[in-house]
């Protein structure tokens, strides 16, 4: 006998000019099926108008972030049976402009990162563009930031953060974590100036260590840790 799980999916169409509603679908579930598989099943068999963004289906592209039963998750990284619920509520992420159904506009996240220059910067521009030597690092130097390179920019932490929800100018867990990632990288030459980028009202000081970012991060990046370490630098 096939087991059915009821999907309550948030549906929003901007052209209707109305608030979103929850539509329900009965989805037959097998062991190994992810929430994303469920949504694809709905799209293929029950309702082709459902909009959902995904690409890799293996938790590496960061496209399919959404709220499942009130908690931010990657749909492709969440087993339906693992949720142990007969009802699954699927909503788009918070704190991003909503485009349609489950699809959010990730621009705020990318713009904040861009403004903070989260990439490796060498003082010597020529060298930056055409490196002539290798930049070796010890195991220890690597360990200082490696964890933070695992970020796939899915935006789940940004959606979970209570401060971003209420104070949108806050730079947010992901961008602050990225700043620390480059600050801690021995190859980067911006140094303490990176800390000065975030030493402002909208920066590290708005973090109150609610830990929700780290609680939802699917890659174990632990942005909360990075922000505390960054703040320690700002307090120096």
């Amino acid at each position: 006998m096939t087991e059915y799980v009821k999907f309550l999916v948030y549906r929003y169409r901007p052209e209707d000019g109305k608030k979103g509603v929850y539509a329900d679908y009965d989805v037959p579930v097998k062991k190994g099926m992810t929430v994303l598989d469920g949504l694809i099943y709905i799209k293929e068999n029950l309702d082709p108008t459902l909009s959902v963004r995904f690409s890799c289906r293996m938790a590496i592209c960061g496209s399919c972030g959404m709220r499942v039963n009130g908690l931010e998750m990657l749909a492709c990284h969440t087993q339906i049976l693992g949720l142990r619920r007969k009802h699954i509520i699927v909503e788009p992420m918070r704190n991003f402009p909503l485009l349609r159904d489950l699809v959010t506009d990730m621009t705020p996240l990318f713009m904040k990162q861009k403004a903070l220059k989260t990439w490796l910067i060498r003082r010597d521009e020529l060298e930056q563009e055409n490196p002539t030597i290798q930049y070796l690092q010890s195991e220890e130097e690597l360990g200082k930031y490696l964890q933070f390179t695992y970020c796939i920019q899915c935006g789940l932490c940004y959606s979970a953060c209570p401060v971003v929800s209420t104070f949108p100018a806050f730079l947010g867990p992901q961008s602050l974590m990225k700043v620390y990632r480059y600050f801690a990288d021995s190859r980067d030459e911006v140094g303490r100036e990176r800390v000065s980028f975030v030493d402002k009202f909208e920066g590290v000081w708005r973090c109150h260590f609610a830990g929700s970012c780290s609680a939802v991060c699917p890659k174990g990046v632990d942005p909360a840790l990075a922000i505390q370490l960054l703040r320690r630098e700002a307090l120096k």
């Binding site: 964890q147 830990g211 780290s214 890659k219 990046v221 632990d222 840790l225 505390q228 703040r231 320690r232």
Partner: peptide, 21 residues
């Protein structure tokens, strides 16, 4: 806030509890 008791960056295993929590 001063960076004490929050743990250190490591190499996270899947489904491991984050160091800061």
């Amino acid at each position: 806030h001063f960076g004490f008791l929050v743990g250190k960056p490591g190499r996270p295993e899947p489904f491991e509890q984050p160091a800061s929590l």
